[in-house]
Design a protein around this nucleic acid. Structure first.
Lengths: 227, 227
DNA sequence: GTCGGTCAAGAGCAGCGCTCTCGTTTGCGT
DNA sequence: ACGCAAACGAGAGCGCTGCTCTTGACCGAC
C-alpha cells in the first residue's frame, strides 16, 4: 500500500513537532519541555498535538530514541574497522564526547537523571545499545586479531555479566573472560562518567584543558583493557 | 543576642519544610517537587512557605546542599584513617554507593542532569567537595606512608589539573604527579559513572550481581591508582 | 501601651498536561 | 461516484502548578 497524502502530511507534521521539541529541549531542558509551547511554535492548537503524541511522555520517549540513534550513528561512523583496536576505541570515545558536547541537553536526557514516574519503554533498548555494540565489536576484533593477551579464563558467571552482554562484548574467545568483560563495562561507565562530569560541571574548577584530560583519561582506560 | 522564641520557631518550621520536601523528593523527584504539595503536607498555606524560601529553586538549592553534606558526611564516616590506603579508598567508594542507593533521588539531584535555567549557587561548592577531599586525603596519606611508587614527575600543568585541585589530591609529593592526579580524577569520575549507571538503569540487562560488579570495578580503579 | 516587623491566609494570574466536544477534511469500500 | 468512518484542528474547560499581592492577626521591643 503506497503512502497516501494523509500519511505523508502526518509524517511531516510529526517531524516538525519533534524538531521544534528538540529545539525547545535545548532551551528549557527535559523537565521544562512544554507541549503547549511546542504547539504554539508549530502553529497549532495544543490539543492537536495529541493526535500525534498521546502524551508529553510519549513525545519525550521519541526524543530519547532519536537521541540514542543519533549518538549510536555518530559512534558507528567514527569507527574505522581498518584502524588499530586502540585507535578505534579511542576514536569512538572521542565521537561520543563530541556528540555529547554538541547536544548537551539531549545527552542529559539520555544519561542524566531519569525523569521521575517515567520508565523508558522497551523500544528504546535497541537504540540505546548501539554504542555498546560498537565498543564490543572493537573488543572482539582485537581479540580475534591477537591484539589482546590471553585471559586467565575462569568460569563464566551470568550473574556478573549476562549472556547477552557477553555476546555483545566480543563473544567467546580465549582472550576474553569475565574479568575482561567487567573491565570493558567499567571503561564504558567511566567514559560516560567522564563526559557527564565535564558536561554537568563537576570538573569545572579542576580541569581547564578538558580535551587533553579526556584523551589521557581514555588512554588510561584502554591501557586497563589491554588495547 | 540570644535566639528569641521567634527564631527557634522559625528554625523548626524551616526544618519541617525541608524534611517534608526531602520526603516528597524521594517520591516524585526533583522535577515533580511541588511547593504547594509540601505546604499541604506541612499544614500551612502555600504562600506561607515563601516566608521561609524565596522560591521553589531556593528550596531545591537547600536540598542540594543538604544532600552534598549528607553524602560527604557518609564518606568521612566511612574512612578509617588507621586502615590501609587501598581499603580506605574502597571503603569510601562503597559508602558513596550505599548512600546513593539509599537516597537515589537525592543522588540524582546532585549528580544527574542539571536543572536547566538553574545554576547551583556558589555556597554549594564546599559541601560538594567533601567526598573529593576525603579521597584526596587518602591519596596523600598513601604517598606520605610510602605506599605509592615514585611518580615520573614531569612539569605541573595547571591547565590539566588546577592548583586547588592538586592541593586537595594529596598535595606535593614525589609519588604524586599530574599523571597520578589525572588518574585520581578519572577514578572519581568512574566511581560516579558506575554508581549512576547502576542507579539509572543503564546496567540493568548486563549485570545482575551489582555488589560484586562494583567491588571488582573499584578494585580495578585502585589498581590503576597504584593503591 | 503603642507601634514596627513578622507571620499565615486567601484571592488571583498565567501557565501547564490533558480531555472532551465540535465542525471539517480525507480516503477507502461499495 | 458516493457515503461513511476515521482522522484532523480548534476551542473550551478541569485541576494542577509557581508565584504575587493584599489583608488581618500577632509578637516583641521601646
Amino acid at each position: 500500500m503506497p503512502p497516501t497524502v494523509r500519511d505523508r502530511v502526518r509524517a511531516e507534521v510529526t517531524a516538525e513537532i519533534t524538531a521544534v521539541a528538540r529545539r525547545q529541549l535545548a532551551e528549557v531542558g527535559a523537565a521544562g519541555l512544554s507541549l503547549r509551547a511546542v504547539a504554539r511554535e508549530v502553529g497549532m492548537a495544543s490539543s492537536a498535538v495529541y493526535r500525534y503524541f498521546a502524551s508529553r511522555d510519549e513525545l519525550l520517549t521519541r526524543l530519547i530514541t532519536d537521541g540514542y540513534d543519533a549518538l549510536g550513528a555518530a559512534a558507528e561512523a567514527a569507527d574505522d574497522p581498518g584502524a588499530a583496536p586502540r585507535e578505534r576505541w579511542l576514536g569512538v570515545c572521542r565521537a561520543v564526547r563530541s556528540w555529547a558536547r554538541a547536544h548537551p541537553h539531549e545527552y542529559a536526557l539520555l544519561y542524566g537523571s531519569p525523569v521521575p514516574g517515567y520508565a523508558a519503554p522497551r523500544d528504546t533498548v535497541p537504540a540505546a545499545a548501539r554504542v555498546g555494540v560498537v565498543l564490543g565489536r572493537i573488543l572482539g576484533d582485537a581479540a580475534r586479531s591477537g591484539a589482546l593477551p590471553e585471559a586467565a579464563g575462569g568460569d563464566r558467571d551470568p550473574e556478573l555479566v549476562s549472556v547477552e552482554t557477553a555476546a555483545v562484548l566480543g563473544g567467546e574467545h580465549p582472550a576474553i573472560d569475565d574479568a575482561v568483560r567487567v573491565r570493558a563495562l567499567l571503561a564504558w561507565s567511566s567514559l560516560y562518567g567522564t563526559v557527564s562530569f565535564e558536561l554537568f560541571g563537576h570538573l569545572a574548577g579542576s580541569v581547564a584543558d578538558t580535551d587533553r584530560y579526556f584523551d589521557i583519561a581514555m588512554g588510561e582506560l584502554t591501557d586497563l583493557l589491554g588495547l
